[in-house]
């Protein structure tokens, strides 16, 4: 069971306090988009055996959403960052590069 640090309230708490929200950084297309774009938004998700950017909510805690970079196989957590970040911060990307270098 994961141990996750909420970037909003700062607690490091067990997974049961959190609710997963799936893959992060999926943009909601504008209403005039094509069926294919809308379908991709609704249904197409990565399922990597690798680093995964994902959404979590501190459901039993402060109630806030945030982002997490996590390796789906080793379960290493490279960092958590704000829910409104459009992409992972450089600091987290650097850490991932360093930690996953061959």
């Amino acid at each position: 069971m994961l141990l996750i640090q909420c970037p909003v309230c700062g607690v490091e708490a067990e997974e049961t306090e959190f609710a997963p929200g799936g893959e992060a950084h999926i943009l909601r297309p504008e209403p005039g988009c094509s069926d294919a774009e809308w379908s991709a938004y609704l249904f197409e998700r990565k399922n990597p055996r690798a680093v995964h950017y994902e959404r979590w909510r501190h459901a039993f805690g402060c109630g806030k959403w945030f982002h997490m970079a996590r390796h789906t196989h080793t379960l290493e957590i490279f960092g958590v960052y704000a829910a409104d970040a459009p992409e992972p911060p450089q600091e987290i990307r650097d850490r991932i590069a360093e930690r996953t270098a061959p």
């Binding site: 309230c9 607690v11 708490a13 049961t16 306090e17 039993f60 805690g61 402060c62 109630g63």
Partner: peptide, 10 residues
Amino acid sequence: VRRTRIATVA
């Protein structure tokens, strides 16, 4: 202050 769960109650 700590918001959490007790058993399954928020």
